[in-house]
């Protein structure tokens, strides 16, 4: 079972994403900020990250930059944010994101990106 870490400070958003992903058969873990996500990532490997940008303590950009500097398995990351400017997308990719979705995300949007990132999409 593929393991996905959701990183978001909003409990409702985490629950929403968790329900979508669990219903599709994924094992879901949660972190409430970048620091907690980094700690969990160093303890165990994940197959994918779903990461918010604006979080206290360590934001999504900071988390991905730190994650990408670590000598661990580098799973793909989908950044999910309310910010829809091109500059936000650019910053996300520069920090190490592989895809970018604008909130609020529709279940099918999230699942398509997750499958693409994990390599489960069929042509």
């Amino acid at each position: 079972m593929k393991r996905i870490l959701i990183v978001d400070d909003a409990a409702t958003v985490r629950l929403y994403h968790r329900q979508i992903l669990e219903a599709a058969g994924y094992k879901v873990y949660e972190a409430v900020n970048g620091i907690e996500a980094l700690e969990k990532s160093l303890q165990q490997p994940f197959d994918l990250y779903v990461v918010d940008i604006n979080m206290p303590k360590l934001d999504g950009y900071g988390f991905l930059r730190e994650l990408r500097s670590q000598d661990i398995y580098q799973a793909p990351a989908i950044m999910v944010s309310t910010e829809a400017q091109t500059s936000d997308h650019q910053q996300a990719f520069a920090a190490g994101a592989n895809a970018y979705l604008v909130k609020p995300v529709k279940p099918e949007q999230l699942l398509i990106q997750v499958k693409l990132m994990i390599g489960e999409a069929r042509g």
Partner: peptide
């Protein structure tokens, strides 16, 4: 038509 709003309002 917005699933997240339906989910979040139901939860609230």
């Amino acid at each position: 038509q917005v699933p997240y709003i339906q989910f979040a309002t139901d939860l609230a």
